[in-house]
Design a protein around this nucleic acid. Structure first.
Length: 493
DNA sequence: GTCCGTCCATATCCATGGTC
DNA sequence: GACCATGGATATGGACGGAC
């Protein structure tokens, strides 16, 4: 077994891709870890081995018996026609993995894959090529796929960044392995190892424990999932025979992922909520938003946390509110969340009309929307600019809000912007009203025959009691010195 | 037929590092 | 500090299959 693992012990300078041992017995042995920490997983691996062997054999026989006969039709740029079952001999000419990926992107990019999904898949293809080598649509076997998944598990989580910047996948694994060894020796008093460890870490300010972390199973799943989708495309578009997807069935289970979970999104404590709303952003700021002063600027940074914490809005929902979405229905101020030219909703259930929490009305959100409308703006937060791979308004906002939280001492891990929405959900859940109303407020799907077929929708009056359940509203009102129905008089901006 | 858990795809969000 | 790139985590819901 030592010989098997020797071939994956890379020197950092070695840029050769990983190779599978030529001997079949070694190939199978290479799929097994030296010491499996989870005996229960052995059976699972054996099943996977069998599946890999069968799929590999099917693939080999198919290539020997039924080679492609004709040049493939070129991918059509026009609307794709639905695939029809065809015999194996009409498979397209075999293509290299990057070409298969390009065809997949061209097909999916128009409707299914957004920019970031394409980027994730591109990264997965690049990692595969670095770690396993160049393969074609039909030449990639289930053993290659299984090897890829196993090596992903050894990849340092920080590959591509910090001390792993500029290294290939195998080089990153080698460096992490070496660093791990040095750390262990240094702990045992080896001064030379400690020196080499420090030299390896260099100017990086990251803790060595972080540099040694390996890729999380969830991220492993993401890479495997990207390749699985590409090979599902390959099957559907006749680059590969049906039911031979080498990445099928390779996902880590939820149980394993839960076991490896590093960080969970938290709910905000009542104390932290009060601290946020008693901070300079809401009490008066100076030149910098986190410094105390006399100014109150009612912009996205001011309103968005309130919209998440008191109305349960998602970040993008809050930041993209059009000026005409704040409306008065029967005397109650409401928010209409719907798809528009500037807003793409997460699901159909995201479209909803909800009452504004009374605190937001008292703080003047309807007036703010009216002021923006009077100035000719389409959105209530015209100052925001889209950014990031998906062109979201939340991209920059998240960084600004994260930075503000840290500056006022609210840097508890997991208590981020989205956690405000979770806090809202948790709070209104305590009163045990109907789940349907809570789901509606949050824009979640709500299943059930009764709901789907016999329910026509919520009235504003039905939903207001849920908002009154937000238990921290009183504390926040006191922090903001706002009394119920006060039509608060801060100067808006 | 229904319920429920798991798998899977995707959207959304956060953290970090680097450059200017 | 603004902006960009990269990578990882979490949320959400549809599809599917097994148990009852």
């Amino acid at each position: 077994m030592a010989a098997v693992f020797a071939h994956v012990a890379y020197a950092e300078e070695d840029s050769q891709p990983l190779r599978i041992p030529p001997d079949p017995a070694d190939r199978i042995a290479a799929l097994l870890p030296a010491a499996d920490p989870e005996p229960a997983s052995l059976a699972h691996r054996l099943v996977r081995l069998l599946r890999a062997a069968i799929a590999g054999a099917v693939d080999l026989v198919q290539r020997l018996v039924a080679p492609p006969l004709a040049e493939p039709p070129q991918p059509q740029a026009a609307a794709p026609t639905p695939p029809t079952p065809v015999p194996a001999e009409t498979l397209r000419r075999d293509v290299a993995l990057p070409d298969l990926f390009a065809a997949c992107v061209e097909s999916k990019g128009q409707t299914e894959w957004t920019g970031k999904t394409v980027r994730d898949a591109d990264r997965a293809v690049a990692l595969f090529t670095e770690m396993i080598g160049e393969r074609t649509a039909r030449g990639l076997t289930a053993i290659d796929a299984s090897d890829f998944q196993r090596l992903l598990g050894r990849l340092p989580a920080w590959h591509g960044r910090s001390i792993y910047k500029g290294l290939t996948g195998p080089q990153s694994i080698a460096k992490a392995d070496r660093l791990e060894t040095l750390v262990r020796r240094a702990e045992q008093g080896d001064a030379a190892a400690a020196e080499e460890r420090d030299r390896m870490i260099g100017r990086s300010e990251m803790a060595v424990e972080k540099l040694l972390e390996r890729l999380h199973p969830k991220t492993n799943n993401k890479h495997v999932g990207s390749l699985r989708a590409i090979f599902a495309f390959a099957e559907e578009h006749h680059y590969r025979a049906k039911d031979t997807n080498p990445f099928a069935g390779l996902f880590f289970s939820k149980a394993k992922m839960k076991k490896n979970q590093r960080r969970r999104r938290d709910v905000w404590s009542d104390d932290d909520l009060v601290r946020l709303f008693a901070s300079p952003l809401y009490q008066g700021h100076g030149d910098a938003r986190h410094e105390p002063g006399a100014r109150i600027t009612k912009d996205a940074l001011y309103w968005a946390p309130l919209l998440a914490g008191f109305n349960g809005l998602r970040l993008e929902e809050a930041l993209r509110i059009p000026v005409n979405a704040v409306m008065n229905i029967g005397g109650a101020w409401c928010l209409r969340i719907q798809a528009s030219e500037t807003q793409r909703l997460k699901t159909e259930a995201s479209e909803r009309t909800v009452p504004l929490h009374p605190l937001l009305v008292d703080l003047g959100l309807p007036e703010h929307a009216a002021a923006m409308r009077a100035r000719g703006h389409k959105a209530i937060f015209p100052e925001l600019r889209p950014g990031g791979p998906d062109n979201t308004l939340g991209y920059q906002f998240s960084k600004v809000f994260g930075s503000y939280r840290k500056r006022i001492g609210l840097d508890h891990p997991g208590r981020d912007f989205h956690a405000l929405r979770k806090t809202f959900n948790t709070s209104i859940q305590r009163k045990h009203r109907s789940d349907a109303g809570r789901h509606y407020l949050l824009g979640h799907e709500h299943g059930g025959v009764n709901y789907e077929h016999y329910f026509s929708g919520f009235e504003v009056a039905d939903l207001l009691p849920y908002l009154e359940d937000v238990h921290y509203a009183g504390d926040v009102r006191r922090a903001l010195a706002i009394t119920e129905g006060s039509e608060e008089g801060h100067s808006g901006g």
